[in-house]
Amino acid sequence: MLLAAEGLTFASHADPGPHYVLERVSLAIEAGEIVDVRGPSGSGKTTLLRALARLLPDVEGTLTLGGRVAEEYAPAEWRSRVTLLPQTAAMRPGTVRDNLLLPWQLKVRSAAHAPPDGALEQALLEVGLGEIALGRDAARLSVGQAARVALLRAVLTAPDVLLLDEPDANLDDESTAQVAAMTEAFASQGGAVMRVRHQRGDVRASRTLRLVGGHLTEVAS
């Protein structure tokens, strides 16, 4: 078991009185798995991903990664291993290269070597973005291109677990297929993936979970 959560509980205080978005949610993901999370709008799927990435204030429960509890990792180190890709691709001002290399400008990876241009170009080619030059202004990418660059940026850092929040929302068929292929390639190399999806699950998912009323249940395949 790679990533495990035990008794995750999170209450929203947006309305008067607490409202439990997650109520003692437990789950486990193995290396190489792709797990889809489905559920109605507002059921807390994004909240669950943020809790797993330790990106949510005031969550109760226990998280373990590779058998070590979350508290043994510095928060930034945890997030570099259990990496969330938010639904909206956030491109920073600068070129595509600047955006792809952004993770290596952070202190958490100060000891690691950033991939050279050749590796970045090869990676872009593999995800169907071969026509995009590294020097292109990131602000001039289409929504579908930006989504793939953001996913590629996360994949290149080689986390243990990728948490994808609606990775193919608002994407055309071609981009959707490419995102699915990138996800599958990541899992086949030993990474674990958890995806929040509105659309029907595809054949690539190993399992599907359903989040309703703060509770998580396995959907029989």
Binding site: A53, L55, A76, E77, R79, S80, T83, L84, L85, P86, T88, A89, A90, R92, L102, P103, Q105, L106, K107, V108, R109, A150, R153, A154, T157
Partner: peptide, 16 residues
């Protein structure tokens, strides 16, 4: 806020 979340998710410190 969206960019701050994306950066934090990649391991950025609050300062970064």
């Amino acid at each position: 806020a969206g960019e701050v979340l994306a950066l934090t998710a990649l391991g950025a410190t609050p300062w970064e």
